[in-house]
Every structure is written in C-alpha cells, then in structure tokens.
Amino acid sequence: MVDPAFVRTMARYNAWQNESLMAAADGLTDAERRLDRGAFFKSIHGTFNHLLWGDETWLSRLTGSAKPPVSGRDSVIYVDDWSAFCARRRERDAAILAWADAVEADWLRGTLIWYFGRAGREIGKPRAFVIAHMFNHQTHHRGQIHAMLTAAGARPEDTDLLLVDEAR
C-alpha cells in the first residue's frame, strides 16, 4: 500500500541509488558515459538525463515546481555537462526527499490531474498510483544504468531495497 512511510522509504532509496550510480559513473570517461550501449536512451549519460527529466516532470505535477524546459524526446540531452548533471541530480533528490517528508495520508487518497503531452489531453489518476509509477520509473531506468555501468566495468553498489536504511 502506498502510504507516507512508503513514499519516504522510496525517496531515500532513490537518493541512495542515484549517488551509487553517479559514483560508479565518475570512474568512466565522458566518452564512455556517452557511448551508445544499445539501451532505449542509448547511453549511460542519456539514460541518467531522461531519469532526471522524468523526476523534474513529476515534481512539477506534484508540487507546482518549474517544468523542465525540454520535451521528453529531448530528455537525453537535458544536462550536457557531467558535473552540472550531478549537482542538479542531488538538488532534485533533496527536493524529492523534502516533498516525501511532507506527504500526508489524506493527500495520497486524492486525484492528480495534469496535462499529458503524449496523449494531448488532461488526465487524472489516483495520487497513490501516480507516486508508485514515479518510483517504478526511477527503478526501471536505474536498472538500465546499473547494467550499462556493470558492462563498462564500473561497480555500483547493490540495489536491494531491503538495504536502504543500512546504506543511508
């Protein structure tokens, strides 16, 4: 069940895993991070960028923060510089943690309505469902990044959700 404790746990997991993957990616060259590795968003850098774009898009819908200035199709080139990307990723993870700390059970029972660009219309879904989707989207793409990093010889930390409280 999606409740405030789940939201906070997943926010901590998100931040922990992003730090792990960025640390592993730091050991690669910029060219290695940008190499097309056959993933949906091509490279490690492109997939990281898409994930950041997605998180900023969801934060804008959930909190009213600014929407990303690029569309989903341009998400792979969102933040070009690796250092700037890492700084922005940490800022967004802090924003997700702060948002998660403020989530209340009553709010989760409501409906989120937003304009869904790919569908070309407004849609609404239960907030708890949307939150589960957001965290699932993060986990999905981090799994892709983890696989690409491992194939490149980097060593990210374990990804087991059960370890989140021990790792942070």
Rank of each mutant, 00 (worst) to 15 (best):
L28H: 05
A119R: 10
A31P: 11
A102P: 04
G110W: 03
D158E: 12
A128V: 00
G54Y: 00
A11S: 14
T47Y: 14
R12V: 08
A167P: 04
R73S: 08
G54H: 00
D106N: 05
A25H: 00
M10G: 05
G110K: 02
C86K: 06
L112K: 01
R12Q: 15
P126L: 11
W82L: 02
S65M: 13
L35I: 06
V70L: 15
F85T: 03
I145P: 10
S65W: 11
A100H: 12
Q17T: 09
G64I: 05
E56Q: 15
Y13F: 10
G27L: 00
E91W: 03
G64N: 11
L35M: 14
D158L: 14
I123D: 04
D80S: 14
W99H: 13
T47K: 10
D80Q: 14
W107I: 08
W82I: 07
T150Y: 02
K125Q: 08
M134S: 08
R168I: 12
L149E: 02
R88D: 00
A94T: 00
L59D: 00
D158M: 13
H133L: 04
E19K: 08
L112C: 03
N49E: 04
S20N: 06
V70Q: 14
V164C: 08
A105C: 02
L97G: 09
R168F: 11
Q144R: 05
Y115I: 13
L112M: 10
A100P: 08
A11C: 09
F6M: 12
G72Y: 02
E104W: 05
A105W: 00
A98Y: 02
F129C: 04
R142L: 10
S43R: 11
T139P: 02
H50M: 09
R155E: 15
C86P: 00
G120L: 13
R121M: 14
T9K: 05
A39V: 12
H45I: 03
H137N: 07
T159N: 15
Q138G: 13
T57K: 08
A25I: 01
A95L: 06
A119D: 06
E166M: 15
D158N: 13
L161Y: 12
M22G: 00
M134E: 07
D30R: 11
R142Y: 12
D160L: 14
D81R: 04
G124K: 11
F40H: 11
E32T: 04
L108H: 03
L149T: 06
A152N: 05
E122T: 15
I77M: 04
A23P: 01
D160S: 15
L161C: 04
A154L: 02
F48T: 12
M22F: 04
N14K: 03
A98T: 10
G54Q: 01
I96A: 12
Q144L: 06
R61Q: 09
H137Y: 10
A31C: 11
H133E: 14
H137G: 05
E157K: 10
V76C: 13
S83T: 05
G64P: 10
F41L: 08
D80G: 09
R118I: 05
S75G: 07
V164K: 06
E91D: 15
Y13G: 01
G72I: 09
A132F: 05
A39T: 10
S75P: 09
R142A: 09
R37A: 07
A24N: 07
F135R: 03
S83M: 01
R90F: 00
